[in-house]
Amino acid sequence: MKQYKPSYFIGQAFRGIWRNGVMSFASIAVLMSCLVVLGSFALLVMNINENLNDLGLMNEVMVFLEFDLTEEQIQNVEREIKSIPGVGDVERITADEGIRSMMEKAGENAYLYEDFLDDNPLSDSFRLTYVDGAKLIDIEYNLRHIGPEIRLVRDQRDLAATMQSLKNGIMLIFSWFLIVLFIVSVFVIINTVKLSVYSRKSEIIIMRYVGATGLFISLPFIIEGALIGLVASAISFLAENFLYGYIQTALADLTGIISIVPIETIRIPMLLAFIAVGVLTGIVGSTISLSKYTRE
């Protein structure tokens, strides 16, 4: 029996946006700013994480070998490492793999490393993990005393602690920003939809008296909020994409020192996250502003 066309609700939503043009624009602008700031923080956190991982901070110790070792010597070292109590996984990284990994991380700037494929400045290394941090001093002592084949043993306890506290600080700020900006955005959208609802107050009253359900009355406004969120998220995504690309290019010279998460790998998750946050904010804002008018 029920024959509601989606086009009716979508049409009404667009009418609402058009009718309150200035407020709709303001909502989009505020929500967009919030999303860009949030997105930037999220990307910053993501990049810090990436660099922390690169530095082998996750209970990892890097053992760099001397140059020009024979395969037999390297295998002997590997056996020695594996026999040290407390050592978990041991992964050998050849000099060639090391360069290729750096090229992969450099993305578009991989060409900078091409010359090193023939004349590799790296030596083979081992990445090993440990479970109990208390045994790290013993593990390191044993590693350094394997023999002259060991050039460098590196763990990043101090740096890890610094980076971890930096990461925690940024996460704290990020969380606060997330809450504050979400609330601000919801309030702006509440006001926009409220205006829209107010301008259609008499229509809503008529709808209620003829027996329209709450959903029939609310849906256009909820779609209006969602559309505002969608437009804001699309613009934010483009802006963030441009900004990140710009920063990535600007920091290209530092490739090798710091690694930047390539934009290509995060584009889709970023777009989806923006749409989810934007549309959700729009829907929450609309629903709150409608509650008074659709009540019985």
Binding site: M1, Q3, M207, V210, G211, F216
Partner: peptide
């Protein structure tokens, strides 16, 4: 509209 609002075809 009164009919549309209650889902009459």
């Amino acid at each position: 509209f009164a009919m549309h609002a209650v889902g009459v075809p």
